[in-house]
């Protein structure tokens, strides 16, 4: 038996030297390893052997099988490459694209809100929510917006009935929170707001805002600048500069518009920043004493600041999106980009 195996092995060694093509190599492989090949013939002899020899012979056959495979593969590898293509042993192509799992995406506006929440969570701000259908009181009166203010008209606010409206700003949450909680207060309030604007590339009748509020003893405008500066550096980048301009909001005094240096042109001036080098990103100010009066806070003892930003605007700036309508169409080709 042992001899026969040796013979078979030598036979292969001779034959393998003679082959010149892959096709011949395949034929040789069939001759030795095929269903009716040399090794297979040995296998058939197995039952005829005495039981005590079977195991050893089986092992020898397996070893032979391994050796034949190696001899053939080495020879195939040494064949000239032009002979390679057809009938060659299957080669694994590691450059094929991988099989990707289908992973979904959070909406880009959610991503922005989450990022903002994260920055402010690091600064100790909790997340607060309030109703979207609001009493006129929370949207206007308590925020020191006079009863004859133009923003109260049908042109600027959606009404359900007389004194019930769709909130036009997330500042309502300031009041809701302060009514329930004594100072100190440190919250941000993201959410949907509504204004009767005809939809175009820059306007939507529904959009998102994030409101922020910090009330404590000894809080000053300089602290407002500190917190906003920290937010801007963390969110937009360490090299981004902040600029404040005096402005007017009924619920803050002093009030400011906050600009950042245009990230697209690094402040040199481009179409995104209307060639000013600055882009407006949020409104802010010290909480007006009348707002504190509305929620029965002692305006002499406590001071605070509030700020508000448009989520769509910030997302558009960050990703260079030029049409607000894209956010609500939910086209997969859009959503998949973020």
């Amino acid at each position: 038996m042992q001899k026969k195996i040796e013979e078979a092995k030598r036979g292969l060694e001779n034959e393998v030297k003679a082959i010149t093509s892959l096709k011949e190599a395949e034929l040789l492989k069939t001759k030795y390893l095929g269903r009716k090949g040399v090794v297979s013939d040995f296998m058939k002899m197995l039952p005829t052997l005495p039981i005590e020899q079977r195991a050893a012979f089986g092992q020898q056959l397996n070893a032979l099988k391994g050796e034949i495979t190696i001899i053939l593969e080495e020879r195939i590898a040494s064949l000239p490459s032009e002979a390679a293509p057809k009938g060659k042993q299957e080669l694994f192509d590691i450059t094929l694209p991988g099989t990707q799992p289908f992973i979904g995406k959070k909406h880009p506006l959610t991503q922005t809100i989450d990022d903002i929440k994260e920055v402010f969570a690091g600064l100790g701000f909790d997340v607060a929510y309030g109703p979207e259908v609001e009493l006129e009181y929370y949207n206007f009166d308590a925020l020191n917006i006079p009863s004859d203010h133009p923003s109260r008209t049908d042109f600027d606010t959606f009404y359900i009935k007389n004194d019930v409206l769709l909130r036009s700003q997330t500042s309502t949450v300031q009041i809701r929170v302060m009514e329930k909680q004594k100072p100190p207060v440190r919250i941000i309030a993201p959410g949907r707001v509504y204004r009767p604007d005809t939809v175009d590339a820059r306007h939507s009748f529904m959009f998102h805002q994030v409101e922020g509020l910090l009330v404590d003893e000894g809080v000053s405008f300089a602290d407002l600048k500190g917190v906003l500066n920290q937010f801007i550096k963390t969110y937009f980048g360490q090299n981004v500069q902040m600029r404040l301009r005096p402005s007017f909001f009924p619920f803050t005094e002093p009030s400011a518009e906050v600009d950042i240096s245009c990230s697209l042109c690094s402040g040199k001036g481009c179409c995104v920043c209307s060639y000013s080098g600055w882009v407006e990103i949020l409104g802010a100010g010290m909480v007006d004493p009348n707002v504190f009066h509305a929620v029965h806070y002692d305006a002499e003892k406590y001071t605070g600041f509030a700020f508000g930003m448009g989520v769509e605007r910030i997302t558009m700036l960050k990703h260079g999106i030029n049409d607000i309508r894209l956010f609500y169409e939910n086209d997969m080709r859009f959503l998949s980009q973020f």
């Binding site: 402010f120 997340v127 404590d216 602290d223 500190g226 404040l244 005096p246 002093p254 400011a256």
Partner: peptide, 29 residues
């Protein structure tokens, strides 16, 4: 407070220092 705003805006919002002295606080999820 209206007078304070007048002083602040002419003094220059950008001349007011940027303070980082707000007390630390862990946010509650």
């Amino acid at each position: 407070i209206d007078l304070i705003e007048e002083v602040a805006r002419v003094y220059g919002y950008n001349n007011i220092p940027t303070k980082t002295s707000v007390s630390i606080r862990g946010s509650v999820k």
